[in-house]
Each structure stands twice: as C-alpha cells, then as structure tokens.
Amino acid sequence: MSFGWLLGRSASIVYTILVVSILVFGITQVLPADAAVTLLGENATPEALAAVRTRLGLDDPYWLQYLHWIGRVVVGDFGTSMRTGQPVGPEMFAALGRSLILAVSAILLMLVVAVPLGMAAALNQGRFADTATSLVSFVGIAFPEFVTATLLALVFADTLQWLPATGWVAPGESAGGFLSHLALPALTASVVLVAHVVRMVRSETLDVLHSDYIRAARLKGVPEGRVLVGHALRNALLPVVTIVALDVGYLLGGIIVIEEIFAIPGIGRQLMVAITARDLPSIQAGALIMAATYALTNTLADMAYTVLDKRIRYD
C-alpha cells in the first residue's frame, strides 16, 4: 500500500461522495414538495411563504443551492430538520451508530454460520450435506427482509414470546435488553447474507481444493487435515473479505426495511420517516452518510485484503 495507492483511493472516495451528493440533491430537488409549505403548513400566507423561501435560498438556481448545501456539508453542517427543527447531523450520526451495531452483528452472525457451512459443503461436494446446504441457501436468498422479519416475529415474538417484537435498548442501559432486542433484527439481516456467502465460500473452497498447489501438497505427503488447515483455509477465505464488503451495500438497503419493521431508531428508519415527511435536509444527509459508509467499508476491505494477501501490492 504505497502513498500513491492511498491517494488514489482517497480521491475515489471523494469522487464517490461528490457523485452521490449530486445524485441525491438532484433527486430530492425534484421532489414535488415545497419546503416552505412543509415548514409553515398549508394555511400560511403567501407573504410568509415568500419570506421563508428567500431565507432558505429556494429561489436561487439549483446549482447555487447545491453549492451552498455541499459547502455546509463539508464543514459538517447538514442543515436543520424541517420536521423537528433540530440540526440533522448529530441526529443522523447517532442513528448511524445504532445501525452500525445492527450491521456489524449481522455480519458477525453471518460469518459464524456461513463460513463453516460453505466449507463443509465444499468438502462434502456432491453428497447429502452439500445438496442440503445448496438447497437451503437457494431458499434463503429468495426471502426479502420484510418477509423474513415478519415470519421470524410471528414465531419468536408472537407465538413463542421469547423475544420482544420491536424496540431498541441501548447497550449501556441493559445488556440483556440490548441483546434480546438486537436478536431478531440481526438474524433477519443475516439470512440473505448467509445464503449468498455460503455459496461463495463453497465455490471459492472448491476452486482452491482443485488447484495445483493443493494437489502438489497432497502429493508431497502432507496429511489431509494439514492440507485443509495449513494450505487451503487461508486462500479460500481471502476472497470472502471482498464479497462481504460488496454485500454491505445490500445489507444497508435491507436495514432500512428491518429498522422500519422492528422500530429501531437507526439511520434507515430516520430515512423512511424523512421520506414520508418529505424532510429534504434529513433525506439528503441520510442518503449521503449511507453511501459514504459503503464507500469507506469497501476501501477498508481492500486494505484488509492487501494486508492478508501478500501477492497483491498496490503500487
């Protein structure tokens, strides 16, 4: 990882955020909502509306409005929520923190399940365990989050009453409450990921097991267990880093639905509320923060990959 590589990656993150900001600003500016009406209500006088428009800069050309907005974003000011009147930034970042707890738990849960399962399937290629795993992952990938969430809530919350159906408890408040409230959302978020990653781990493991250097190790008289752990494991797991990073985009989308269903005050729910209320500053901030999170995750994954895989040096 040379200086040039880091510089290139930073430039690409900046470019990503620039493109996303234009995209988000462009889409939201076309929203058929008059910010002034949203603020003052339907019964406001035309004079009051005009005054608000001038104050908010709504009469300026779009590009000027964009520059004003992005200029403030650069210094960390995401504007004021039209719904609550509070600054958007702190609210969004607090929500992002809760979403990240959910996302990281889902990824950890997924790794614990998917990696051993995928490897077991590859090692038993063609046998029952392999077919069963493939079948389950095929089914798992076909359940959208809202279906999984509703069905899981039906079983574990409504019928068995083991876990709460909705809500969020901060980890500092009560560890037990935190975990029990986190369980169903994290499980929901991990289902599609598990299904996808199991298939990837299986095919990566098969590729490695069929490679020349594994054959060479076997033909050097290395015992099978040592071949798997010492030679195959690391090489099969390397590409999974990249796959998981790409899945984060899907995960973030899924989190919007999951937070809505389980009433978790994360960034996804903030966004849904903002979209419903046509609260422009909140929509813009939320979308931008989500995209930036994704871009950062991918860069981190690339860096992790370079550290783990000695073959690749970004120079």
Binding site: T16, V24, I27, L252, I256, L271, A287, M290
Partner: peptide, 14 residues
Amino acid sequence: DAVMAVPGLLLALL
C-alpha cells in the same frame, strides 16, 4: 461505481 454506493433499495425509495 459511485452511483452503486447508494444501496439499491435506498435509490428506489428516493
């Protein structure tokens, strides 16, 4: 690539 940093569902929602 930059556009794909916006999750599909979020883009659709917007």
